[in-house]
Amino acid sequence: MVYILLDNAIKYTRAGGDVKISLLQERSYLCIAVQDTEVGIKNEDINRIFERFYRADKSRSRQMGGHGLGLSSAK
């Protein structure tokens, strides 16, 4: 799961951008946050990013490769 999140962040961050991973504990939970310096995900796409084959930006699918299964597998 961590690999998929990092892979997406790196793949969709332009050269010169940053990817940050944070690990923190909230009560008895361990939380991992992956953050990049790109524009982010539009509000209307947030609820769909874990759907199989869904791509918020269809134009990037040919450039970046993949099949749109990564985040649904991570979920």
Rank of each mutant, 00 (worst) to 15 (best):
residue 27 R to A: 11
residue 20 K to C: 05
residue 2 V to P: 00
residue 43 N to H: 12
residue 45 D to R: 11
residue 26 E to T: 08
residue 6 L to K: 11
residue 21 I to H: 08
residue 29 Y to I: 06
residue 30 L to K: 12
residue 6 L to T: 02
residue 13 T to C: 03
residue 6 L to I: 05
residue 4 I to L: 10
residue 6 L to P: 00
residue 55 R to N: 13
residue 64 M to H: 04
residue 6 L to R: 09
residue 26 E to N: 09
residue 23 L to V: 13
residue 43 N to Q: 15
residue 44 E to Q: 14
residue 34 V to S: 02
residue 7 D to G: 01
residue 4 I to M: 04
residue 62 R to V: 06
residue 45 D to P: 08
residue 68 G to E: 04
residue 52 R to P: 09
residue 28 S to H: 14
residue 46 I to E: 11
residue 70 G to D: 09
residue 65 G to I: 01
residue 35 Q to D: 09
residue 28 S to V: 07
residue 25 Q to G: 05
residue 32 I to D: 01
residue 69 L to C: 05
residue 37 T to I: 09
residue 24 L to W: 10
residue 26 E to Y: 12
residue 70 G to S: 04
residue 41 I to K: 06
residue 54 Y to H: 07
residue 5 L to Q: 04
residue 64 M to S: 03
residue 37 T to A: 03
residue 56 A to Y: 04
residue 15 A to P: 03
residue 14 R to L: 04
residue 46 I to K: 15
residue 57 D to S: 05
residue 69 L to I: 06
residue 28 S to E: 15
residue 26 E to I: 11
residue 21 I to S: 11
residue 68 G to Q: 02
residue 53 F to E: 13
residue 15 A to Y: 08
residue 71 L to S: 01
residue 43 N to M: 10
residue 51 E to W: 13
residue 31 C to G: 02
residue 56 A to S: 13
residue 50 F to V: 10
residue 3 Y to I: 06
residue 23 L to K: 12
residue 18 D to C: 07
residue 36 D to W: 04
residue 9 A to H: 00
residue 5 L to T: 00
residue 55 R to C: 08
residue 31 C to K: 15
residue 60 R to D: 03
residue 32 I to E: 01
residue 33 A to W: 08
residue 5 L to R: 01
residue 29 Y to E: 15
residue 65 G to P: 00
residue 9 A to Q: 00
residue 49 I to Y: 07
residue 73 S to Y: 15
residue 1 M to F: 07
residue 44 E to C: 10
residue 73 S to A: 13
residue 9 A to W: 01
residue 14 R to V: 02
residue 30 L to W: 14
residue 17 G to A: 03
residue 26 E to C: 06
residue 3 Y to S: 05
residue 33 A to Y: 13
residue 71 L to C: 03
residue 27 R to F: 10
residue 49 I to L: 11
residue 62 R to E: 12
residue 34 V to R: 03
residue 51 E to G: 00
residue 14 R to T: 02
residue 40 G to T: 04
residue 28 S to R: 14
